[in-house]
Amino acid sequence: MTRQMLTFAAIGVLNTGTYYAPYLLFLPHMPYLAAHILATFISMTGSFFLNARFTYRTRPTLRKFLLFPLTNAANFVITTTGVYVLVDLLHFSSRLSPLLASLGAIPVTFVVSRWIMLPKAETAGIA
């Protein structure tokens, strides 16, 4: 499981860039939450295939692909709440807040994605 966590984290760094570049491109043209939502959806597909192949070493299936947004749902709720709190309540920069908010989502996203991507027998060892 340690290899999975490290690989998941490395892919997460790559996926953060995949999210952040479109976010910055959209930001001048729309409200920050709209830019956040659109960038999140763009980065989701790549994250699914990279995690299937490298983190969990499992075959990507349509079922897993359709369930994978649950991992992003957890991430989305945590990061969207974080972005809102950081920008609107704490007056942080809307350019940097998504990066800070994403730190809190990593552990939850890992647990949910592992549950979706691996058969129950393989995840039974998690406590």
Rank of each mutant, 00 (worst) to 15 (best):
G12T: 04
V112P: 00
A124T: 14
N72P: 01
M117E: 03
I106M: 09
R114D: 10
F110D: 03
T79M: 00
V83G: 04
W115L: 14
G125V: 15
P22Q: 01
Q4D: 02
I106W: 11
R53E: 04
S113D: 08
L70Q: 03
T40F: 08
I78V: 11
I37V: 15
F49G: 08
G104C: 11
Q4Y: 08
V108Q: 11
K64N: 06
M1Q: 14
F48Q: 00
V85R: 03
A105W: 12
T79E: 04
M1R: 14
R59L: 06
A101C: 06
L90H: 05
F68K: 01
H29C: 06
L33S: 14
I106C: 03
F68S: 02
V111N: 02
I78H: 08
Y19A: 09
F48A: 00
L89Q: 15
F65Y: 10
Y20I: 03
A74W: 10
S93E: 09
L38W: 14
R3W: 08
P22L: 04
N72K: 00
R63M: 10
P69K: 06
T40I: 03
A105V: 05
L27N: 07
T80I: 06
R63S: 10
L103A: 15
L90P: 05
A101L: 10
L50T: 07
I126N: 11
L70G: 00
R114I: 05
Y23L: 01
Y56S: 01
T58Y: 01
V77C: 07
Y20Q: 04
N75T: 07
T109Q: 12
S93C: 07
N75I: 05
L66D: 13
M30F: 03
T2Q: 13
V85T: 08
R114L: 09
F65K: 01
I11G: 00
E122S: 11
M1K: 13
Y84R: 08
T80D: 05
T71A: 15
P28C: 11
M30C: 10
A52M: 04
A124F: 14
P69I: 07
Y20L: 01
N75S: 13
N15I: 08
L38D: 12
L33A: 13
L6E: 04
I37F: 15
A52Y: 02
A101I: 04
I126H: 12
P28H: 08
T2W: 14
V87A: 07
V108M: 11
D88R: 12
L6Y: 10
T55C: 03
R63Q: 10
M5H: 12
G125S: 15
S47N: 10
P119I: 07
L100Y: 14
M117V: 07
I42Y: 06
Y56A: 06
L103G: 15
P98D: 06
T81C: 05
G82C: 04
A105Q: 06
Q4S: 07
A10V: 13
T45V: 14
P119H: 06
V77T: 09
S47F: 02
S97P: 06
F92S: 09
S93F: 09
